[in-house]
Design a protein around this nucleic acid. Structure first.
Length: 258
DNA sequence: ATGGCCTGCAACGCAGGA
């Protein structure tokens, strides 16, 4: 079985002990990380190498930053959406023997109508323009990460309060639906149709204890890869540890390629 | 209770997150 996980760690430096602890128990073959928040020179390669992981990274000071840990060394790496000039490090694609993994930290967008919101929509449009050719080149394509979009109201603890707000607005959701329509499945929804399953909980107001969350961390498998998907789950345990990331890891398992 | 917390960077508060 091939286990692929995605986790917004909210600073790899602040979360290194959690990351190590979680990898030792969950033992993913591939782990996509978002919000590493560090320059490449300060990335903890040694600690992760001791766990048996190669690391590909694309980082910057303070903000954003993505990484992919894998047992096998990638055959190819991309760090940007072609043709979309962006100072912010939010994209890391790696070609592995079993699949092509695209790790994304989609812009948050701040507030509907803001400059950051316009950037988020333009970023998503550039992604949508790129994915058809990536899918054609790599039929076993897995797009994972912090999408900063709750796909529908089942993914929101209080849909009325969040209606038309950032992460839930119609322009964001319609872009996610366009992405899925290119030929992807939201793997979590292959196994769970109910509401109340979240991957992020606000640090404030005891959000986790009260399960006031959103499902914004996604694992989207191309249709041909989705047919080999055995499970997709959100692991809430590390969110309960002391000084946690506000996001939980999403863990998806696949039948190995023939 | 219409706010609540956390991180990095620099610096003694800010930007940003979602």
């Amino acid at each position: 079985m091939l286990t692929v996980a995605s986790w917004n760690v909210n600073s790899i430096k602040a979360r290194l002990d959690h990351l190590v602890r979680w990898c030792e128990s969950a033992r993913p073959d591939v782990l996509a990380l978002q919000e590493t928040k560090t320059v490449d020179a300060n990335f903890p390669f040694d600690a992760l190498s001791s766990l048996g992981y190669h690391a590909e990274i694309s980082g910057q000071p303070s903000y954003n930053g993505v990484a992919v840990l894998s047992r096998e060394v990638p055959l190819e790496v991309v760090t940007a959406i072609p043709g979309f000039a962006d100072e912010q490090k939010r994209v890391l694609g790696v070609r592995l023997p079993q699949l092509f993994l695209l790790n994304l930290y989609v812009p948050n967008g701040s507030a509907v109508g803001s400059d950051k919101y316009a950037y988020k929509l333009a970023w998503l449009d550039a992604l949508l323009a790129w994915l058809p050719e990536l899918l054609a080149a790599h039929p076993r394509l897995l797009v994972v990460g912090d999408f900063n979009i709750a796909p529908d109201d089942r993914d929101v603890h209080d849909p009325a309060a969040w209606r038309d707000q950032i992460l839930c607005s119609e322009p964001e959701r319609s872009r996610l639906q366009q992405l899925l329509a290119l030929g992807f499945k939201d793997t979590f929804r292959l196994f769970e149709a109910g509401d109340g399953c979240f991957s992020w909980w606000d640090y404030r107001a005891a959000g986790f204890r009260r399960n006031l969350g959103l499902r914004i961390d996604l694992c989207l498998a191309s249709n041909s890869l989705a047919s080999a998907c055995h499970s997709s789950q959100i692991d809430r345990e590390p969110r309960s540890w002391e000084k946690p990331s506000d996001h939980a890891p999403v863990v998806t398992c696949f039948e190995p390629a023939p």
